[in-house]
């Protein structure tokens, strides 16, 4: 069995035990989390908009009204025209123009937003959609990834979790940045108050 032979070889080869370092609680940084998040998201090709809960619907209609098929993971928001929960095969999501997803929290230092299986009817949704809107509470922001993983540890997640920082992108052709590689061509984060 390769398993045993690999492990045996490792036991034979491995260097003397080195201790595991204690991780920093969180590097304290002074500054405005919201401003940092907005600035960083812009840098990675997305945009963040501060908005009051009641204005979300109107704003989405204004921004994305021209799009046909919109999915949403929040039944209280009233603009979705496809019920993704009734779809079995994720390939049927192929024509979705816009996904609006309520998520957990954002990370100020890199403009990332954390979402998990419990925010998603299908894991494919935030990737296959042409445009993506993520909604997080403005006060639900952590400074950096250390803090983010502390929070993930507390909240736990089952199955699948992803940090999304901006729209999908590539620079594989001559290092020139192109937004919209395989996933969304735009990514907007609403910071709700």
């Amino acid at each position: 069995m390769s398993r045993e032979s690999i492990l045996a070889q490792i036991r034979k080869s491995k260097p003397e035990l080195v201790g595991l370092p204690i991780l920093p609680e969180c590097h304290i940084v002074e500054g405005d989390l919201t401003e940092q998040f907005k600035k960083t998201l812009l840098l990675v090709g997305g945009q963040a908009i501060e908005i009051s809960e009641g204005d979300i619907e109107l704003h989405i209609k204004k921004m994305f009204g021209y799009l046909k098929l919109t999915a949403c993971n929040d039944g209280t928001l009233n603009f979705s025209n496809i019920d993704t929960c009734s779809i079995d095969d994720p390939r049927e999501l192929r024509d979705i123009d816009l996904a609006v997803l309520r998520c957990r929290f954002g990370v100020a230092e890199n403009g990332a937003v954390w979402l998990t299986d419990s925010d998603l009817s299908h894991r494919a949704l935030p990737f296959i959609t042409q445009h993506c809107v993520l909604i997080i509470p403005k006060n639900g922001m952590v400074w950096n990834m250390h803090e983010a993983y502390q929070r993930i540890k507390q909240e736990n997640y089952n199955g699948f979790g992803v940090f999304i920082s901006g729209p999908s992108k590539t620079a594989d052709i001559e290092q020139s940045l192109v937004i919209g590689a395989h996933g969304p061509k735009s990514l907007t984060v609403f910071l709700t108050t």
């Binding site: 960083t40 840098l43 990675v44 990370v107 230092e109 890199n110 403009g111 990332a112 990737f127 990834m145 997640y157 089952n158 199955g159 699948f160 979790g161 992803v162 940090f163 999304i164 920082s165 901006g166 729209p167 999908s168 992108k169 996933g183």
Partner: peptide, 10 residues
Amino acid sequence: PVTTYTSHYL
């Protein structure tokens, strides 16, 4: 600052 997608598969 981070890759666009950091996907965690459990």
